[in-house]
Design a binder for these strands. Sequence first.
DNA 1: CAGAATCCTATGCGATACTG
DNA 2: CAGTATCGCATAGGATTCTG
Lengths: 155, 155
Amino acid sequence: MARQESLKNSECPVARTLEAIGERWCLMIIREAFDDVRRFSEFQKNLGLAKNILASRLKLLVELKVFEIRPVSNGSAYNEYVLTERGRSVFPIVVAMRQWGERYLFEKGEIHSVLMDNQGEQAIQPLEVRSERGVKLTPGDCHRRRVIKGESVDN
Amino acid sequence: MARQESLKNSECPVARTLEAIGERWCLMIIREAFDDVRRFSEFQKNLGLAKNILASRLKLLVELKVFEIRPVSNGSAYNEYVLTERGRSVFPIVVAMRQWGERYLFEKGEIHSVLMDNQGEQAIQPLEVRSERGVKLTPGDCHRRRVIKGESVDN
DNA sequence: CAGAATCCTATGCGATACTG
DNA sequence: CAGTATCGCATAGGATTCTG
């Protein structure tokens, strides 16, 4: 089974998301973009990955419409990689990972980065899964159901 | 750079989370566990991955305390893999991935699974990132700051 | 500086066989 | 059934070189 194809047509959205952008460098690149990184060299400097890998990931993410390529404003003849709405929508995924890591993968006293809001320096609330009516849900409160996208779930 | 080590000691919690459980099969296994899958053969049947891979991932996830091994209740002499609190806390990550995939990786009319709550069959709200005071935040509203875990961020 | 192209190695992972 | 052990291929990804 060709590794890359195996989950691409899964009917589980989690599987497809993992297949599309779940790879570590993709998410790290997107995370950098949330900090307004836009240039090839900046991504490379901050992440320390090989240039060919970065290039291939950026290409992939442009194909997926997570980034769009934009000619740079300041004169230099190269491109910027700017998040699309689709790319910005990855935010909750990255925040959820961040919060889990903060909680479980650091020892007390260890340095790590946290996310703060820009106005007033407030911390971020833990993400919570809630039903339509606002009830907080745990994994056990949920089940999966097959639906057709675009059609009503009811009746 | 030994691929597996490169992000493990990053001070970015996103990087550590990716390194720990970001690999596709790990998250798929955890997703199965959210549907109350507990047995080796069930994981394997539902996911269709090779047994040695499943075994190594389960071992890894037990080491990470995402799962705990529990002797099975119903007599059969084997083990169950049960999510710990730490494992259940992965829920928002999986839900965030699910929601992103639902939105962007399916065509209208395509079949996919959705998450519903068990009582009343309500859909799940889109995850939102909010500051302490409840203001909804986009990536641009945030910045990263280095802190020492366990110590107060203020003063 | 922003990539593309080439090369090489480590390893992810599937397939299969073996064990209690 | 629940794994462990072995093998082999494909690919991820690092290092390096080349180009506009």
